[in-house]
């Protein structure tokens, strides 16, 4: 009986490939949150960079067309038609940025990681609004609105919607 116990113990002390595997798995399991943070940081940053590139390209295409948030001035050319245009986008922050805000909330101050997300959303919404009427000559009375759809407490998905709308004007083609 005694002997058998000792033998069992000796068997246990020997490093088995099985126990190494288990150890690695446990290590992997505990480092999973950190791995997720790193992965989302890299992926999130790549997505953001690409999105900004896309936004800049499209903004260049549109910068000839004026957009104001005022009424149409009386000195405009003869207006042929007008229509309401709407553009909207729902954005959310990545896992890494959400984690960062935990620290930011201790010290206060600007949440740069969040402002870039909303900035992207707003510019995207304005571009979509403009793209809704590609032949427009001017956009007047542009309004931008941001609203929280859900604040992400518990299991809910935190996201905000940015909405931009305006009246697109088309001028009568001049005879000259």
């Amino acid at each position: 009986m005694e002997l058998q116990f000792v033998a069992n113990k000796a068997n246990f002390m020997e490093p088995q490939p099985d126990s190494i595997l288990v150890g690695l798995l446990v290590l992997f399991f505990y480092s999973l949150p950190i791995l997720l943070l790193i992965a989302t940081w890299i992926i999130g940053r790549t997505i953001e960079k690409r999105h900004y590139q896309d936004i800049r390209q499209r903004e260049d295409r549109w910068h000839q067309v004026p957009a104001t948030n005022g009424k149409p001035t009386p000195d405009l050319p003869q207006i042929a038609s007008s229509e309401l245009v709407v553009g909207s986008v729902v954005v959310s922050v990545d896992h890494f940025k959400r984690w960062l805000t935990g620290f930011r909330k201790i010290f206060g101050g600007e949440m740069k990681s969040y402002s870039s997300v909303i900035d992207r959303g707003r510019r995207e919404a304005i571009l979509r609004m403009k793209e809704a009427c590609p032949e427009a000559d001017m956009f007047v009375n542009c309004r931008i609105m941001t609203s929280t759809i859900s604040n992400g407490k518990g299991k809910a998905i935190g996201c905000s919607e940015v909405l931009a709308y305006a009246t697109a004007l088309r001028f009568q083609p001049s005879d000259e």
Partner: peptide, 23 residues
């Protein structure tokens, strides 16, 4: 799908569609 997209951030296309339809 939005839950998965929410991990990496960016636009939630499904929700954008939904809001568009609703509007």
């Amino acid at each position: 799908m939005a839950g998965l997209k929410n991990i990496v951030g960016g636009e939630l296309k499904g929700y954008t569609e939904l809001m568009k339809e609703a509007r």
